[in-house]
């Protein structure tokens, strides 16, 4: 099953004393803060989870895989995620 924003909102609602409306608002607000931070070029470090890094990529020569024509790919800025040791350990824990 895929976890979506609705599932996150639901678990906040169930596990805290916030109302549904407040949970929705808090999650939306949290996501917007995250996006805004990355947009401004700042990295986001969530201890115990991982680090969202903003990386500048140089312009490079690429190729259209379909036609094989060479073309230039513009410089761009991307978000990468590096998982924390804790998250990695949690994923690799033996079940039960």
């Amino acid at each position: 099953m895929t976890i979506t924003k609705a599932n996150l909102i639901d678990s906040i609602y169930k596990q805290s004393d916030l109302r549904k409306q407040e949970s929705t608002s808090a999650v939306e607000s949290l996501l917007e803060i995250i996006k805004h931070t990355l947009e401004s070029g700042e990295d986001l470090l969530v201890s115990g989870f991982g680090k969202f890094c903003v990386k500048d990529k140089n312009m490079r020569r690429g190729r259209n895989p379909h036609t094989g024509n060479g073309l230039m790919l513009d410089a761009r800025r991307v978000v990468t995620f590096k998982c924390s040791r804790t998250l990695r350990e949690n994923l690799n824990k033996k079940k039960k």
Binding site: Q15, L18, L30
Partner: peptide, 12 residues
């Protein structure tokens, strides 16, 4: 803090 922790622990 509770909300932030809940979000990331749910994701974990």
């Amino acid at each position: 803090e509770e909300i932030v922790n809940l979000v990331f622990s749910e994701m974990t």
